[in-house]
Design a protein around this nucleic acid. Structure first.
Length: 911
RNA sequence: GGGUAAUUAGCUCAGUUGGUUUAGAGCGCUGCUUUGACAGAGCAGAGGUCACAGGUUCGAGUCCUGUAUUACCCA
């Protein structure tokens, strides 16, 4: 069968992925091997594959595949996150298109729609991961809202409530008026926007000739004001403190108070206090025992307490009130300025600070254990510097309680019940339990009323934050809260791979939950291995476009992941993603931006595709050789033997380097090392060394050696580029069923001879030297050259090595290579190390060109020698530097001087 | 305002505890090569003094201080 000159990924990739699945290579069951466990950062069910997913799943796959080849029990658990706000928004939107409002159909029916939506679209992103080659154990696919995981959430909630670490309270929270739910601090994105500062005059009660001018960005909230605050030391306002002013337009009297919170420099130095609509104002209000007047509805419109502009949206109201204030003469000045505005991560609507009754997790104890875990090194961060960010977020001064309730339906409903007779928001009795029946039992006991029935209870309407289910992920995917069998084997997981942007949302909280529940669930394992959910966290960078902007849907600057996979193949894209991706550093993805947006192109992915093609053609070359059983002539046999021995040593050297890189998660470096080994050492040198003459056959031993080496390289590269390596693995020889690259044995690094490798490097330098002279003198490839080596002990030793001399003759297309002490009359000289070689030319030498070349080289060494001499003439250096270093410098000097001497000699000969 | 990181060749990045020839890779660029694995290729070459200013040291791309620029995090 003849192979196409190009590697064609399409059918090959789907063929092998199917094959791997059929043989269940990705499936893991506990056994007596060492486990290597990774839980996927569950993508949102609403998600489609983007560049960030491709990056971090490629990295996970590399680690998992490497572990599998190392003989470990590799288990990569996939799954999706129910993403309450995003998914609920999608379903609401879909229903709206059908003319259905969620409030009309009620909770049960809505959830049914939502589950239908999830069943239909929720698996898309996982299928896309398969195209990338992700070797997840798909039989273990989990979902954060499936029964078992929801039960874990309820159990944990009840447990924490029982421990007194969950509470319900009124707080100023971040309100999303579009989604009509509260948001956690992490779900609010702040950015600078243009705004206006309104200077408003509040007249003094009883004496309108006097007054105070405040500055506000939100004039539509003045009706909710309860005071005006000034700095206690501000001389401008001393006489006003304690008096009342009137709110413009509605003429309600409010006091002027003094508080050091006020910044005298900002605005007019006087601040209106609006506790219901500002966090800081709320705190001041608490200190002064001021009332809270909430003038906004849940969807951001003015309510009847505003007295004016009732029913208007907050932004419309701002425009209208401006006019009213102008007309009434209260607007003194309007000033443009830049300020940070918070917007909802999900809906992009401007977040409204709002006083609401919510559920919170007390973070003090959690933060402490999460900090200790990383401080002590039980959980290691790659790169380490993320500790700083982590630490500053979690330390006592900064950590804030976690608001976990959401006013949504898509999620786990909070397992708290109230007495139906108590007014909403004013409940005095709270019963938290796994089931309504248990809550009822509590209620009967606490109220002393044995007549109560379920109908007398009302369950909390809110659901918990999505992260309140995903923080249990490393335990819950193994059903660890129910049965500890699997958890005992797989916990703690090996490494977590995720973007640093969710360090607080997710990473920190998983660490907290691990230290909280693992000791209760699997005490023996924890005693032996620790309570951490993962031993290491590999933080990936953000994928950015070539203008350094984060890739996002709204900017339209992200290439289409699937189109990239089509264009370059999964292996090509994996190569491209990884080649500029050191841990923790952002990745500038090189997709060009055209007139109509970003193109689905990438030079880096192209390089990956070309690499596949290169290996493919190396395969074609080997397969094209005809096998001959005849013995080789002695010289060729020696060349082939030398080549094989050299590549073997080089492979072991490479392997040792790659092993170290893996332990340090320097994956892109490991890939580049393998790339260079395969492309340069194997293809460009080894194959050329052993290549038979045109249409000549190859001997059995060389062919088999080559196949064996190629096969090992495929295993080495497999974690990075799984498809092409599997294909070549099978093309190299007939395989029995189950003899697949994906489960082959990763070679163990064996000893290698660095001195030997170095000698071959010198021989390669000799070949390169001849090629350069060929290039400079316009000599054809086919023209066989005569090369002479200056007679020195070391060149004798080098060329005496079995097979080396004929190898050089072959690689440099020489007629011969001889050692000589005679003068070469028409020879061009070049140096390899300190050995001098001559290429004898038939034609006249271009003396000027030669002189220039030698002169240039000489100048380099002159500069070099000078700098070394400078160092060595420094007495302090000679006396304080280690002898080893000084000797090295002396060696450098001797080498350099020798080279200068040789070069000067040759220059002299040119006359 | 506080913090973290980055700043090395035209571009994208390595450079692990300061000392393996006056810094490496890939892409791009230049020249040559086109019947024999691969033009998605081969061979060779040019191109940086490591943002800037100080300092520590026998010795600094690497450590310290400051400045500038960029990105992000927190307020």
């Amino acid at each position: 069968m003849s192979l196409s000159t190009r590697y064609t990924p399409q059918e090959i990739e789907s063929k092998w992925y199917q094959h791997w699945l059929e043989r269940r290579y990705f499936h893991s069951e506990p056994d007596d091997r060492e486990p290597f466990t990774v839980v996927i950062p569950p993508p949102n069910v609403t998600g489609v594959l983007h560049m960030g997913h491709m990056l971090n799943n490629t990295i996970q796959d590399i680690l998992i595949r490497k572990a599998r080849l190392d003989g470990k029990n590799a288990c990569w658990v996939p799954g999706t996150d129910h993403a309450s706000i995003a998914t609920e928004a999608k379903v609401v939107q879909q229903l709206r298109a059908q003319g259905i409002r969620k409030t009309d159909i009620g909770r049960e029916a809505f959830l049914q729609h939502a589950f239908e939506w999830k069943d239909k679209y929720g698996g898309i992103i996982l299928d896309q991961l398969k195209r990338l080659g992700a070797s997840c154990d798909w039989e273990r696919t989990r979902f954060t809202m499936e029964d078992s995981l929801s039960e874990a959430v309820i159990r944990v909630f009840v447990d924490l409530y029982g421990k007194g670490r969950i509470y319900r309270d009124w707080r100023i929270t971040n309100w999303d008026p579009e989604a009509k739910t509260v948001l956690s601090n992490e779900e609010v994105i702040y950015s600078e926007e243009n705004a206006q500062l309104f200077h408003l005059r509040y007249p003094l009660e009883g004496d309108p000739s006097q007054g105070i001018v405040i500055a506000t960005q939100r004039p539509e909230t003045i009706m909710a004001d309860v005071a005006v605050a000034v700095h206690p030391d501000d001389e401008r306002f001393q006489h006003l403190i304690g008096k009342n002013v009137l709110i413009p337009l509605i003429d309600r009297a409010i006091p002027i108070i003094a508080d050091t919170y006020v910044d005298r420099e900002f605005g007019t130095g006087a601040l209106k206090i609006t506790p219901a609509h500002d966090q800081n104002d709320y705190e001041i209000g608490q200190r002064f025992n001021l009332p809270v007047i909430d003038i906004l509805t849940e969807d951001g419109k003015l309510n009847e307490k505003a007295q004016i502009l009732i029913g208007e949206d907050r932004f419309v109201a701002r425009k209208k009130i401006r006019k009213l204030l102008e007309e009434s003469g209260h607007l003194i000045k309007l000033e443009d300025y830049r300020t940070k505005i918070g917007r909802s991560e999900r809906t992009n609507s401007v977040v409204e600070p709002r006083l609401t009754l919510q559920w919170f997790v007390d973070m003090k104890k959690f933060a402490h254990s999460a900090l200790e875990a990383v401080r002590s090194g039980e959980v290691k961060f790659y790169p380490e510097h993320f500790w700083n960010m982590y630490n500053s977020w979690l330390n006592e001064d900064n950590v804030r309680d976690w608001c976990i309730s959401r006013q949504l339906w898509w999620g786990q409903r909070i397992p708290a019940w109230y007495l139906a007779t108590e007014r909403m928001g004013e409940e005095k009795h709270i019963f938290v339990a796994d089931t309504a029946e248990e809550a009822l039992a509590q209620a009967r006991e606490k109220t002393g009323n044995a007549e109560l029935s379920i109908a007398d209870l009302r369950q909390e309407e809110d659901v918990v934050d999505t992260w309140f289910s995903s923080w249990l992920w490393p335990i819950s995917v193994f059903d660890g809260f129910k049965t500890q069998e699997e958890l005992k084997y797989y916990y703690p997981t090996s490494v977590l791979v995720t973007g640093w942007d969710i360090m607080f949302f997710w990473v920190a909280r998983m660490i907290m939950s691990g230290y909280e529940w693992a000791p209760e669930l699997i005490p023996d394992v924890v005693k032996e291995k620790g309570a951490m959910p993962f031993r290491g966290v590999y933080f990936t960078g953000m994928v950015r476009d070539n203008l350094r902007r984060k890739m996002s849907k709204s900017l339209g600057n992200s290439p289409d992941a699937l189109a990239l996979l089509d264009n370059y193949g999964a292996d090509g894209v994996r190569f491209g993603m990884l080649s500029s991706a050191a841990a923790g550093n952002d990745i500038i993805f090189d997709a060009p931006i055209g007139k109509d947006g970003v193109l689905n192109e990438s030079k880096l992915c192209e390089q990956g595709r070309n690499f596949c093609n290169k290996m493919w053609n190396a395969l074609r070359l080997i397969k094209s050789w005809e096998l001959s059983e005849k013995a080789l002539d002695a010289e060729t046999a020696q060349v082939n033997q030398l080549a094989a021995t050299w590549l073997e040593h080089k492979l072991n050297q490479t392997l040792a380097q790659v092993e170290v890189m893996f332990t340090e998660y320097r994956l892109s470096e490991a890939l580049m090392t393998l790339y260079k080994f395969i492309w340069d050492d194997f293809c460009a040198w080894y194959l050329e060394m052993i290549k038979p003459a045109y249409e000549a056959p190859i001997d059995r031993q060389t062919l088999q050696q080559s196949i064996a080496l190629f096969e090992r390289m495929m295993t080495l590269l497999h974690p990075f580029m799984p498809f092409v390596t599997e294909e070549i693995w099978h093309q190299l020889r007939e395989r029995a069923a189950g003899d697949d690259c994906v489960i082959s044995k990763y070679p163990k690094a064996a000893a290698f001879d660095a001195v030997f490798i170095e000698k071959i490097e010198r021989a390669k330098g000799l070949v390169t030297g001849v090629r350069e002279i060929r290039n400079n003198n316009g000599l054809k490839q086919k023209e066989l050259l005569k090369v002479f080596a200056q007679d020195t002990p070391s060149s004798r030793e080098l060329l005496a090595m079995d097979g080396l001399l004929p190898m050089v003759v072959k690689m440099a297309s020489l007629e011969f290579l001889q050692i000589t002490s005679a003068e070469i009359s028409n020879g061009v000289a070049f140096l390899v190390g300190n050995e001098k070689f001559y290429v004898e030319l038939e034609q006249a030498i271009d003396v000027e060109e030669e002189r220039k070349r030698l002169q240039k080289e000489l100048e380099y060494y002159q500069g070099f020698v000078k700098s070394v001499q400078h160092k060595l003439s420094n007495e302090k250096f000679v006396s304080s530097a280690p002898a080893e270093v000084v000797n090295k410098e002396k060696q450098k000097l001797a080498d350099g001087e020798m080279k200068m001497k040789n070069l000067a000699e040759e220059l002299g000969k040119l006359g």
